[in-house]
Amino acid sequence: MMSNEAIAKKKQKYMKEEIIIAGFGGQGVLSMGKIMAYSAIMQDLEVTWMPSYGPEMRGGTANVCVIISDKKISSPIITKYDTAIILNQQSLDKFEERVKPGGLLIYDPSGITREPVRKDIKVCSIDAIEVAAEVGNAKVYNMAVLGAYLKMKESLKMENVVKGLEKSIPARYSDLIQKNREAIEKGMERVKILSESK
């Protein structure tokens, strides 16, 4: 059993990143989360991936909560996030207020009709549709968004993301790994910081 000092020690240098990814079903929200989760495992981190499941997934919004940590993860259910990755208006309405102060919000402007209003968080945008069009494959849309995240946060390393991709994409689609990688790299270049947290 741990004493209070042991708990305090446990909290030191304790990395935990709580991420919500939300958008329409079909935008690759769940698979983006899965690739992040795989990458975290490659980095020898603990991870939980908890999808919303239920009637709302048919044509409606889909979201997944990914927690990455260097310690065992207790609750996979959380209401405040370090990072929110937002791909449609409904998700912005629902999750903007749930970003922790000082946290990060990344969104795709083509999916929303109003700008984020929070001033106490960092806000970035990524035109992922443009990136996907340039790469020439609509399926890599979510990887452009992932690129934006990787540029903004250092919790996951690119080499491990590539390993994560290799794990989750069958070898016969190896050309797709290259395209995904290209989209990630372009996403990293194109992400725009709109405002720093105040």
Binding site: V47, T48, M50, Y53
Partner: peptide, 10 residues
């Protein structure tokens, strides 16, 4: 339960 069934982990 539904959480443990749907939750992905190592």
């Amino acid at each position: 339960d539904g959480i443990i069934g749907q939750l992905m982990e190592k």
